[in-house]
Design a protein around this nucleic acid. Structure first.
Lengths: 226, 226
DNA sequence: TGTACATCAGTGAACGCGCGTTCACTGATGTAC
DNA sequence: TGTACATCAGTGAACGCGCGTTCACTGATGTAC
């Protein structure tokens, strides 16, 4: 598992200002332990909104009262997880950008890369899937915003890579919005895959590829309305 | 609000076997009060998995212990709500079939009909949206199944109406699967619309229309792979 | 460097509360004759 | 129809439990001189 632990990014930010072993570094560490504890508790398929504060602190190995040094309630912790999910998703795009897209079978290989990515970062996707519909209104809204940021970034990338050069930006954003929805939906399907059913996994992957192909077929014949 | 109360369908089924005022009719009534209580408690935006058994019985006006005459736990009640959602969705298709589709602007007017339908049945869609990702594994699976039934029924309808006559059935199912996902996603957006923002509502509707248009554009140039 | 004081992340105990579940019960509805 | 008994949906009280939150505390880290 190569994925970063929750919040490590912000922990690293400014290692000069917070030397290892310093008070603030220790605090960051406990904060990450709380975030990770919440993610771990969801691994069995439980939703974020069914977690209790005491459960999370127990899993993190701290006393319940210590929670309040980091978050005012579980909702705040949830919002921090949404942010961590955003970081995770942006890393997906960054990696895709860095290695470039393979010349042939772009769609299918992208789907395979994404599938592995979801599995590697399954804790974040599990959280996102459960809180997207079932979280508090604040958390839902935060996730919605994160998703649209992601879609816009993807649209910008497509522009930069000169894919679909004839389409205006708002059409690209529309397409990417639909792609992101489809991706998130596929993620929940991937997460719920039984371990010992390679056939089901193959069908799901195939279906996902074809859904995306359908969208990009539509994009190819898209014309600006009006 | 013209929507049936939860479970009324099964209450009506066999009115001869259960005359009004009879014991079993009374029991059905309480059962429906429990289902409605759960739906009502979610109206403020809370997710299903955050409800407690005592809350539900309090809202329904019965003593907590009475709950067990109808369901063994909240999960069972949730499964009953999934079924009620399925009934609601099938009514959407039935109504669409009955009145036929208008000759021009099919897509846009379908979206408007759907938008009203979601608003009229907002309690069911709220539940479905919250439990789709955030419910227990059993409930999530039940919703997944209900959605795919709905998609298949929609595909069959398209076949019967001779829309996209050149496409094989599995392509129709693929398309309808994507449409259903998009519809469910739009439903959560519709539910979270602020009351006093006609502009946001218009944009959302427009976006929804264009996403569907994109899908059907893709469908038009779809070819069976292989 | 050494000392005296300040900060504050995490502790441990305590609180009142709502929870899920159990149980024996009651009294209206249903059934047998 | 009338009577005696059976059924069972809903009651009300009780239970032990985990919950969120509070508080004064401790002791390691940080700071000022």
């Amino acid at each position: 598992m190569s994925a970063d632990p929750a919040g490590s990014t912000s922990a690293r930010r400014g290692s000069a200002a917070a030397p290892p072993g310093s008070r603030s570094a220790q605090k960051q560490l406990t904060r990450e332990r709380l975030l990770n504890a919440a993610l771990n508790l969801m691994e069995t398929g439980r939703g974020f909104s069914s977690l209790s504060l005491r459960e999370v602190t127990r899993e993190a190995g701290v006393v319940p009262a210590a929670f309040y040094r980091h978050f005012s309630d579980l909702d705040e912790l949830g919002l921090a997880l949404v942010e961590a999910c955003g970081v995770t998703l942006r890393r997906l795009l960054r990696d895709a950008r860095r290695q470039g897209l393979p010349p042939t079978q772009i769609l299918r290989s992208s789907v395979l890369i994404y599938k592995n990515y979801v599995k590697e970062n399954h804790r974040y996707f599990r959280f996102a899937a459960s809180a997207r519909g079932g979280g508090s209104p604040r958390i839902r809204k935060a996730i919605r915003i994160e998703e649209s940021h992601f879609a816009n970034e993807m649209a910008q990338d497509m522009r930069d890579m000169n894919l679909m050069p004839k389409l205006p930006m708002d059409a690209l954003e529309l397409i990417c919005g639909l792609v992101v929805t489809t991706m998130m939906n596929a993620a929940t399907d991937i997460l719920d895959l039984p371990e010992d059913q390679p056939q089901a996994e193959k069908e799901l992957t195939e279906n996902f590829v074809m859904q995306l192909r359908l969208i990009f077929l539509g994009a190819r014949s898209w014309k600006q309305p009006g």
